[in-house]
Nucleic acid binder design. Structure first.
Lengths: 236, 236
DNA sequence: TGTCACCTCGCCATTTCTGGGGAGGTTGAA
DNA sequence: TTCAACCTCCCCAGAAATGGCGAGGTGACA
């Protein structure tokens, strides 16, 4: 391996711009001795943010085609907590085989390992390394690097979140009872059930829902629950 | 520090029962040289799973009182990607001060650091260490241990997920139109507005909402939107 | 001592959603 | 080809939520 990981992470925590992050991505690629290293965040309404070492052509093609929807790596990571080895994924299906061919043409390696990362408000990102080594070499290499990759993934995402300024500004915090009320609705209760569970009258419950909605600037109850969930005001 | 972290993590990856995980939690506590170490998985519906070193009395009191809803540590971690220092939280409020007093009486330390952990399907957990050191000592201790704590948090959650067999969530994926429909509702539209935006009749929209609700096993529209959001099926 | 946020309760009319039926066309995979 | 899943449209009646009008008590903070 190249430099010491700890010093790389220290450097990483100092970056404050996308360009600097991009440079650190390249350094991490060298450190992990892989051909490509990719950070890819899909938070927000379709907007994606990436810092990677693929060719620009492939990236714009990927985005314009909406490949995030069919990419087996993305789909696999969405349902996994652990890092995902690309060979363990399902690469069958017409769209998928077409995607795979294009990816290989674009220089993406056949071997790969992707770390799923999840942040507040439903943020989701991938941190992937990819290469063209043989199976055995790749397995051994990843076996040695897995824990380091987890840490790198964490800190890259942390910097990316900070650079993008994803500090959700919440006008006024909800009161405990307002949180209770929205929580009951979020788990499927109707108002009589929720009121009974909270041991208050249905009308009082309505007052909480209304005040929560006003604070959140929501247009209706469903909107209020969705906003509160997205902002991390309710337990998932 | 006690044993080498890597060997502790290796041990950890071999556990297959709650009891064994509990034993490893105690070992990790000794390794990190703290009074208490807590792994705590929570959901809005109220199910909780914990492996920790607090007294059994405090745990059952915490659960029976539904303290997960008011605990500032939980609420802070919900909105953060980075580990959260307990001193940076807001401990004011009537219920909160009462909770704090009871916690201190139960032997919970005044110092603490909690790592938020997020898994697929909206899973959310905390990995916390707590102690009664002085501020300066605590800060220095945590500064040295932070990266190790991140790794420990990851692997404890990984084992907990596997032991509980939560790998099979989300039976059937939502169709594109179902996602569209729920997304419109999540941003506050009512049915006529959403139907117009999607350029379909209101009746058709209802079909999507109904089928999405059936797939998600939701009891009403608000529940369906909340579930889909929590499971990361909608963009926030 | 006053203010302000919070918690609790009630009624009315109107709008909106929900549950139960239908029907038919398209598309992709086995 | 056949089948399943998807997309689109329609009606009706009862259930539920919403909007707007109230009221009073508590505790914290300045």
């Amino acid at each position: 391996m190249g430099d010491d990981l700890n010093s790389l992470l220290d450097r990483l925590q100092g970056v404050t711009s996308r360009e600097a992050l991009q440079a650190e991505i390249a350094r991490l690629r060298d450190h992990f001795e892989v051909e490509h290293l990719v950070y890819h965040s899909v938070s927000g309404a379709g907007e994606q943010y990436a810092a990677l070492t693929y060719s620009q052509d492939w990236v714009s093609h990927y985005v314009s085609q909406g490949y995030a929807r069919i990419d087996p790596v993305v789909r696999g990571c969405l349902r996994s907590f652990e890092p995902v080895d690309w060979r363990a994924l399902d690469w069958t299906g017409r769209q998928v085989t077409g995607f795979l061919d294009e990816a290989l043409d674009a220089g993406v390696g056949r071997q790969g390992l992707s770390v799923p990362i999840r942040g507040p408000g439903g943020q989701f990102a991938l941190f992937s390394v990819s290469d063209r080594r043989q199976d055995v070499l790749w397995q051994a290499h990843m076996g040695r690097s897995q824990r380091d990759l987890l840490l790198a993934a964490h800190f890259v995402n942390q910097r990316a979140l900070e650079i993008d300024g994803r500090t959700t500004l919440c006008a006024r915090a909800l009161s405990p009872r307002e949180i209770d009320a929205l929580t009951m609705l979020a788990v499927g209760m109707n108002r009589p059930q929720a009121a009974e569970r909270l041991a208050i009258s249905e009308h009082t419950l309505r007052v909480y829902i209304e005040s929560a909605r006003a604070k959140l600037g929501a247009l209706n109850t469903t909107h209020a629950v969705a906003s509160a969930l997205s902002q991390g005001l309710l337990l998932p």
